[in-house]
Amino acid sequence: PTPPYLKWAESLHSLLDDQDGIHLFRTFLKQEECADVLDFWFACTGFRKLEANEGQGEEKKLKLAKAIYKKYILDNNGIVSRQIKPATKSFIKDCVMRLHIDPAMFDQAQTEIQTMMEENTYPLFLKSDIYLEYT
């Protein structure tokens, strides 16, 4: 069978579908001081999943949406915030302010961050010493 680390080079999704791959990618991003980008990507996925689960309180969803907004979007100098378009940030801010919590409210922001990873940090990771040493 194909070793996992070769699969990681196929696509960003193959990498993010493997625990060891995520761990190594995160170590690399930490070195580059942008691990928040990966955490934000997973937080968006987790937020959508929470919404899909029955029995989760509305209050918890609101609290989580606020927490994601505060940690990653509010600070315009943050690594995540800098990669997200102003219109997307306004949309999320509006959702939080009006307490309009929607399962898809972070989707556009997640897509923008994902594109940035695919074009930037992911190719760099595949060329990094961390990845090459691992292989």
Binding site: L16, I22, G46, L64, I68, K71
Partner: peptide
């Protein structure tokens, strides 16, 4: 009551793939 950070961490962990 969960702190915001705990809530975020829980959310991030829930999105990660489970060990194969």
């Amino acid at each position: 009551i969960d702190s915001e950070d705990d809530l975020l961490q829980e959310c991030i962990s829930s999105a990660m793939p489970k060990k194969k």
